[in-house]
């Protein structure tokens, strides 16, 4: 006998269900002829099948389910946005709209803040020229200007002389921007003064100089090493961009 007795009971189910291949089926039949226990199990499986199926225990779909389903299918077939249920679609639409509105509001807000700051920068620049109060420390030496700020502010601005590039340093002073004390460095370009405002902006990535034209002034704004920079002058935009690019590097 090639089939072990212990394997037979499980295989008997497949045998009774007609799921065994011919070779295994014949093996089982041979075993059944000699093994009364297995024969009894086979009869039990067949008897169970009879009992389970004799009184038609299967459930049938109720008529109202069939009706409701047909109606639901018709609705589904008409819907253009099929694949997503209406509540979900509505929810998704509302969410997306809310996010867009919020983003637009934030963007508007940022733009408005930017414009307001630009106006302040220009105001500072104009005042510095009118009051002949351009610099508190007059020096073209960066090593003189930088230490002057020590103890007056709680950050250390980078002070660079750009004489070799045609933008000699004229000096520095303290100024106010957006309600905070900021550093103002003054450079010259062919008698045109340039005000460079520097204020710390923690945890903000570097941005390239961005040009803003307001009230006939050229402005550039950029962020570099967690410092916000505003350069303002009545210089033409190309020359001021050159200046900004030198510092933003």
């Amino acid at each position: 006998m090639s089939i072990d007795h212990s394997q037979v009971p499980e295989l008997l189910h497949a045998y009774v269900d007609g799921e065994l291949d011919l070779v295994n089926g014949q093996e089982i039949e041979r075993h059944l002829r000699t093994c009364e226990d297995c024969r009894r199990i086979e009869q039990q499986i067949r008897a169970l099948h009879e009992v389970v199926t004799s009184d038609a225990p299967s459930y049938r779909a109720p008529a109202h389910l069939r009706r409701n389903l047909r109606a639901a299918l018709r609705r589904e077939a008409k819907e253009p946005g099929r694949g997503i249920s209406w509540p979900w679609l509505t929810f998704a639409t509302v969410t997306v709209c809310a996010i867009l509105l919020l983003a637009a509001a934030l963007f508007q807000n940022t733009r408005a803040t930017q414009r307001a700051l630009a106006d302040q920068v220009i105001g500072n620049h104009v005042r510095s020229l009118l009051a002949t109060h351009l610099v508190d420390v007059a020096s073209s030496d960066q090593h003189t200007v930088k230490p002057w700020f020590d103890g007056k502010i709680d950050f250390a601005p980078e002070v660079r002389d750009l004489s070799n590039d045609g933008f000699p340093l004229a000096g520095g002073r303290l100024d106010y921007l957006d309600g905070k004390t900021v550093v103002a460095l003054v450079y010259h370009r062919n008698k045109h003064p340039i005000n460079l405002f520097i204020a710390p902006v923690p945890a903000k990535g570097d941005t390239a100089p961005e040009s803003i034209n307001r009230r006939g002034y050229s402005l550039f704004h950029w962020t570099h090493s967690e410092m916000d920079y505003w350069a303002v002058s009545d210089l033409n935009q190309t020359e001021l961009r050159h200046f900004a690019d030198l510092l933003a590097r």
Partner: peptide, 18 residues
């Protein structure tokens, strides 16, 4: 395995089977 000593009642009605 399908204990041969346990006989099932052949007169089971639909609800019992369910």
């Amino acid at each position: 395995e399908m204990d041969a000593g346990v006989a099932i009642d052949r007169a089971q009605d639909r609800e019992t089977v369910r």
